[in-house]
């Protein structure tokens, strides 16, 4: 399965630790997603996977490809930049949508909007 381009042992151990740490953090994040009680709790959980989970896995990949291919593998930088830019945007949009829905239905203990025009918009 693995093409053995004689990876040195130190590199193999380093890659293993990084990949395992990344995968474990992502798993913890997703367990949190499944376990926490309300939506506003859960919105914090996936960021574990998208912050350091991704960073560790990608670092492992950088180390592996740099060692085996004898050149700098920088593809991962793109994935990292992409993930770190897009996740906050999606989470923010989702949180706003959830807030909007909870307010129009008046469920949960969601703080009211600071905007005085809000109720008119909600009823429209």
């Amino acid at each position: 399965m693995i093409e053995t381009v004689d990876t040195p042992v130190w590199a193999a151990i380093l890659v293993s630790v990084l990949v395992l740490a990344g995968a474990l953090l992502t798993l913890v994040g997703c367990i949190g997603l499944a376990r926490l009680e309300t939506f506003y709790h859960r919105i914090h959980a996936p960021t574990l996977g998208t912050s350091f989970g991704t960073i560790f896995l990608l670092l492992g990949s950088v180390v592996y490809f740099t060692v085996t291919n004898q050149r700098l593998a920088v593809h991962e930088v793109l994935v990292f930049v992409f993930v770190s830019v897009t996740t906050p945007v999606t989470l923010m949009l989702l949180a706003r949508a959830a807030l909007y829905r909870d307010r129009t239905e008046r469920n949960g203990n969601v703080p009211p909007s600071a905007d005085p025009d809000y109720t008119e918009q909600g009823q429209r």
Binding site: I2, A11, A12, L27
Partner: peptide, 24 residues
């Protein structure tokens, strides 16, 4: 030696990720 380490660690990592997918 290093191939075995890599094989097992990446397999375990993939199992972790699969479990994470199950949780989602």
């Amino acid at each position: 030696m290093s191939a075995t380490i890599l094989f097992w660690s990446i397999s375990v990592a993939q199992v972790f990720l699969a479990l994470a997918m199950v949780a989602t």
